[in-house]
Design a protein around this nucleic acid. Structure first.
Lengths: 193, 193
DNA sequence: GTCTATAGTATGATAGAC
DNA sequence: GTCTATCATACTATAGAC
């Protein structure tokens, strides 16, 4: 069927772009490599995505969708507000280790591309914003979970959570070891205790 | 004089490489751009640095030298162990703001280049290692400064300092705003209080 | 200046749906 | 047969390393 075939082709392109942009960065992942890996011909690739930048933005949107779905699932697996709060950084640990410590696909784009107006950076920031919103809402749930937590400052805790999380990502990417994430997990735990 | 001229030429190349590799990254800074900015002819540039990678490693070594000198100066400006300890992240805030939030020249290379065996990454890690050693020695000075600080865990504090610092760099680079660094400064302060 | 790599295009062919 | 999605290949132009 027509639509099925179309979407399958698009999927193949996105899959190849997903792997290569993440593993090798924007400039490291060339269109020729992506095309070769996708198994789709060059003209067809360009009929779906008219420029490399377009394809990269589409990849980041897909990544945004998948990562948020995976994170939400990890959070919903937990029952108590405290466990749900901790689920974010525990999810991160698993994701970073699984990636071989290649870091965050969005952060890496921010590091590589200096222009904040570039559509790739705009898309990356949209993910980061949503991520921080998720954290903030989990902190609020902790605050409202019991009287003892009423004195917590949610804005401050959420911001610190985010910074510690950024540090865990960069630190583990630099050393290719899990200890920065473990240190960060303890710090995040301390924030609400 | 011959040696003087040579070193001046080398300096001009390094200066151009310094600015462009930092502002635009490894792949974004092309040899043609660096050569044009340096005002040195192409063959001469290649007589000093036989490959782009060589030049980049030389740039990072120079950056390592300058940043460590600048950091040491900022630390030595302070008297008490506590102020010297805080000097690191205060120095960082100034450096990041002055750069227009382009982040850390070493971290950006780690994000852009996936191969940990690449000489550029090896050089970047040598800077990060030395940076962490500096932090650790300042934490030890705080610990030994007064009996009340004797119970501090220097390894743990130094590691957390480093992670929070990484987070401040990435966070301020993503938002191009100083608040992640300010939040980090408070967190670093708390670590020894 | 030379040679290669890269983004993107143009042309003609193929295979299946209708 | 037509129409459409796709493929294969050759091509251009530019940029980049050296």
């Amino acid at each position: 069927m027509k639509t099925k075939k179309q979407s399958h082709t698009r999927e193949k392109i996105i899959t190849a772009a997903y792997e290569l942009f993440y593993a090798q960065g924007y400039q490291g992942a060339t269109m020729d490599k992506i095309i070769e890996r996708s198994g789709v011909s060059k003209p067809t690739v360009y009929s779906y995505f008219s420029t490399k930048e377009d394809l990269c933005v589409a990849y980041l949107k897909e990544r945004h969708k998948r990562e948020m779905a995976s994170l939400d699932e990890a959070i919903d697996w937990e029952k108590t507000p405290q466990d749900r709060y901790m689920a974010v950084i525990r999810w991160l640990k698993r994701a970073l280790m699984d990636s071989g410590y290649r870091g965050c696909g969005f952060f890496n784009m921010v590091s590589e591309i200096p222009d904040p107006g570039n559509p790739i950076i705009v898309e990356a920031k949209s993910y980061i914003d949503e991520f921080r919103e998720t954290i903030k809402s989990l902190v609020l749930d902790v605050k409202n979970s019991e009287p003892k937590k009423k004195n917590l400052d949610p804005e401050r805790i959420a911001d610190t959570y985010y910074i510690v999380l950024c540090g865990a990502i960069m630190g583990s990417q630099e050393y290719r070891e899990p200890w920065p994430i473990d240190r960060a997990i303890e710090e995040v735990e301390r924030l609400i205790s």
